[in-house]
Amino acid sequence: MMKDNDKKKQWGKNLSKLKTHLTRPSLDNRMKQALDRLEWRTKLEKSLPTHTAPERWEDIEKGIYPKQPLLSPKKLKWMALFIILISTLVLYLYLLDFADENQTDTHEHLNEEVDMAWDSKQWLYFDEFCEEHFISCDILNMDSLHTEWDETVRNLFDLKESIREYGKEELLLHELNRLEAEYTELVTRFLNTLLS
């Protein structure tokens, strides 16, 4: 009996081994899979077309070796800002220099004008000269000339003061030119009167 039981046990073990063996993917099955793969591959390879890729080497090369910009956008921004600042500074200095030069010119010009006017005041004493030389002031109509001249000189002095106070050179220079013309006319008239 014992021997029969042992045999049964052994038989059971063998059956279990066989079942395990049978349920495992067999060599045959793997062969079938390989064959299936080969068959499908061959069929698909034969049927499906191959394609030629368009030439994109230059683009790829650009992608691998991108051109480095000389300046990064950040550096470029700073550079632009620096240039703007320098330009502004240069322009400011130029204008400052120009204004200064202009002001100096104006003052020099004005001083000359005033000096000339002051010298010209000598003309105011010309009546004395006329008297000394027996020339009548009435004949020469010197009185009216004196009055006009005094006014011109006064204007010139006022101008000089205004320039000192307000520094409006352009406006005053224009006025000065007008006065200068007036003065020239006055002198011309005076000389004409004297010589006539």
Binding site: A53, P54, R56, I60, G63, I64
Partner: peptide
């Protein structure tokens, strides 16, 4: 084409 270009850039 685009994928190929991008792929090759990554490859290199």
């Amino acid at each position: 084409e685009w994928a190929l270009q991008d792929g090759f850039i990554q490859i290199f």
